[in-house]
Write a protein that binds this DNA or RNA. Structure first.
Lengths: 343, 343
DNA sequence: TGTTAGCACTCTCTTGTGTAGAGTGCTAAC
DNA sequence: GTTAGCACTCTACACAAGAGAGTGCTAACA
């Protein structure tokens, strides 16, 4: 299916005008706003053809035309070439990042915020905690006579801790010895591989102290679970209100409901883990409640491993070009941050 | 201003019917639904009096009547006596708490969730981190040749940590000595009182290593700031959509905007720290954007010190009685949890 | 053959009008 | 003091008419 250049041009105008205004685009409008050197009647004929080809749709006979999902698909596939951001945008982003980043979580939260502000839509950032990190060692830090803080350290510098009750009369050097033994046993193991029964032979060392043993076990497992957890950051849910297609309170309510279902969102984002950039338009999405939406999603990797996904969710009428540019920039930014963190 | 028993009765019926239905209440409705033994005409006369006294308002001449802010005030002050929850409600609450509480934060989050579900309104839980906790000691945990994890431990078992770069060639026992010295210096001090300049004389110990010094300083300050921070948990923002008074998308948007302004919310909740239970009706609230709302707020204490506040925000038409009962129950629940945690 | 002007047609959106329904206030009777 | 009756008011809803925007079709033109 080849389109003439003129048809392409008109299609592009309809799409971009509709993206900008959210109003059906009429032949007259096109002739007035864009100087194509042809009359509305000619444009009408072309649009009529485009409708037959499935690129345009009419909400009703006397309205202008609206791009179909197929049109958006064609548009993102072969009509746009996302360029660099404007200096202004870059400065804005850099500023936002500088504003408030203390922890890793802050970085992701900021990314979500920036993504939503720039795209004027809801954004999601999903991080795969690095499940490749491995156990380094553990240590007891004394707290008071009956309790100590158990610290677990991973090779990438993450630390997890919990308070454990210690058996009456147990000395610090006994505890150090115990920590040493467990550390030797587990050192270098991937957190995800650590199972409870590996520690069972240590039960003897604990002079059969059941409570301490279960505390230790729980701590190790909790840490390993915490590390593997995927964490979700949402940004700009309020943006929904600014989209005319969601002017209806019930629709917003429904979408907010979806956004609260963290599991569902994770499924959505995990679905397309393979490719780098993924754009899902309208009913291409499997999840029924957002089939009038589009999602632009980028997966980022570190050393070949997927470490996270960011996405923008909005009406099919979305500034794809801008969104992609922003994601590209954010992606590079994160890459730098994580590369630095790793070394 | 004394009301006759019959006026009181009618006022109560109007308020409770309006709370239940959100529709203006007419004399006919009252006569039909509630068997008062008097005719609509008599009720009309009484309602007319109540309107003159400022308790009732008419949206327009031919609508029923609606309680005024003054009526709600009178209602909560002298017409309700919050009783115990039903067994069913108690079971629900206990179930929700059991569902997912691992950390302290989970408890507060659950409290917010429960509060919003039971009240069918937005809930807020604000916690004052215990600023009375004091520095116990610090410790370096080795990570690799260039870095160590700095752990700060408070007397109540809280631990904070950050990764610091260590000077080339610094040995573990040197670091232990350093940690020991700083610990001795700061031990027992309230976190909120720790200032940067206290550590300045240690600068010499660090052989003038500026980087390590600033890292340490930052870690200590960050921890002290983190401990003092008030943390806010929101629940049930989606409930806004279920309130007919907020059917308008713009109004919801405005309210959601307010709810995102964490600082504003903190100000709101901190305003009434003194009293245990505080009910703010309509324009009694100083913040203009929620002057068509009411807020029921309870402050809870531990050993005389304010440790947190919970609140329900909703339209003035609120089930005050139920809300108060629920808060009372949650309050007792938290009391038990924290008493246990402290010992 | 492609392009254009003209015109009738269609559909939505807004405005105005009429009616049903709910509730009130007033008056006169009990 | 209470009640029935009645006129009055106001809203909500339905329906109709007109304006506006856009289309499709036809016939003329280059």
């Amino acid at each position: 299916m080849m389109l003439t250049d003129r048809k392409k041009k008109i299609l592009q105008i309809v799409i971009e005008d509709y993206i900008a205004t959210a109003e059906p685009v009429g032949s007259r409008t096109i002739a007035r706003k864009y100087d194509l050197g042809i009359s509305p009647a000619t444009i009408r004929n072309e649009m009529s053809d485009l409708e037959l080809l499935g690129f345009l749709e009419q909400p009703h006979t006397s309205a202008g035309r609206v791009p179909s999902a197929q049109a958006y698909r064609f548009y993102v596939d072969s009509m746009i070439s996302p360029g660099a951001l404007t200096d202004n945008d870059r400065a804005l982003i850099d500023g936002w990042y500088r504003e408030r980043v203390r922890s890793i979580d802050d970085i992701f939260q900021s990314t979500a915020k920036i993504l939503s502000r720039m795209s004027k839509n809801v954004s999601m950032v999903l991080t795969n905690r690095d499940s490749s990190s491995s156990f380094s060692y553990m240590r007891f830090l004394p707290l008071d006579r009956n309790r100590a803080i158990l610290c677990l350290i991973t090779d990438d510098g993450n630390i997890d801790n919990c308070v454990v009750d210690i058996p009456l009369g147990m000395k610090q050097d006994e505890m150090d010895y115990l920590a040493q033994r467990i550390s030797n046993k587990l050192h270098g193991m991937k957190l995800s591989n650590i199972k409870g029964n590996m520690l069972e032979e240590l039960y003897v060392d604990l002079s059969g102290d059941k409570m301490l043993f279960t505390s230790l076990l729980k701590a190790v497992q909790q840490m390993s679970a915490g590390q593997q957890e995927q964490k979700m950051f949402l940004g700009g849910t309020k943006q929904l209100f600014n989209q005319p297609e969601f002017r209806d309170a019930d629709r917003i309510k429904e979408l907010l409901g979806v956004l609260e279902e963290e599991k569902l969102l994770k499924d959505m984002l995990n679905a397309g883990e393979n490719s780098g950039l993924r754009i899902t338009i309208g009913s291409e999405n499997k999840f029924t409640s957002i089939q009038d939406c589009s999602m632009v999603q980028a997966t980022y990797r570190l050393n070949g491993q997927v470490v996270g996904t960011m996405a923008v969710l909005g009406p099919t009428r979305m500034e794809y070009c801008k969104v992609i540019s922003v994601m590209d920039y954010l992606h590079k930014y994160l890459q730098v941050v994580f590369d630095k963190a790793k070394t």
